[in-house]
Amino acid sequence: MSRVDLFLWVALPYLCVAVFVVGHVWRHRRGQLTWTTRSTQLLESRLLRIGSPLFHLGILAAVGGHVLGILVPRGWTEAIGIQEHAYHWIAIVAGVAAGTAIVLGLAILLYRRVAVPRVRHTTTRSDLVVLPLLVLVIGGGMLVTVWGTAIDEYPYRTTVSPWFRGIFGFAPEADLMAGAPFVFQLHAVSSWLLFAVWPFSRLVHAWSFPLGYLRRSHILYRSRTPRAALARNRALDGRRRG
């Protein structure tokens, strides 16, 4: 096993996961003020109304597919009676459907980001890092589904998936991944990088999906408590002294 393999399939994943976790703690504590979808619907609505639901719903479906294909071991699905052949076809049909929605949605959204001046001018530097990465991850993912799974029929559930689970079991088997086709490798590396920049970008809005809204009461009241005011004054005092 070469050093490059060791880096790509062991060191990089741990590095990116570490940045992902620590970054999120940092962002959660310091970055609430910028924690938002950064929606541009106000600036352009016509294209977004087609592209955004396609993209987001496709992504949600793809996340589900990844859970099934990568996190769930092959033995489990077979134990509940889903044979490999059936799984294979489910994965291809659902995967291609979700992937098509994502690619279409992303294409529309990227087009409006470049071609609509208002949207282009509100693009942040973090977008410039995240969007190319997203293209890489999604393009790679689409290739994995179409070429790697449907045409080449590469058995990723016995190679890529155990490697991925191994990382979280602290027993990564780099060999499994070193022998995988290039599209799988590309998809894996670009995804780790995406996870690494996640906490520093607008992607954090994914964690804010407002499920709590379904249960809370309609009208909310908050008190302006003396304690809060005291804390504020104390902080101000500290700043004045410092």
Partner: peptide, 20 residues
């Protein structure tokens, strides 16, 4: 939220997630 004391309606800038 609506302020308990005087009923002023405000947006918590730290909690807003831009769902619009």
């Amino acid at each position: 939220y609506k302020r308990e004391e005087d009923g002023i309606v405000l947006v918590d800038q730290e909690a807003c997630r831009g769902w619009r």
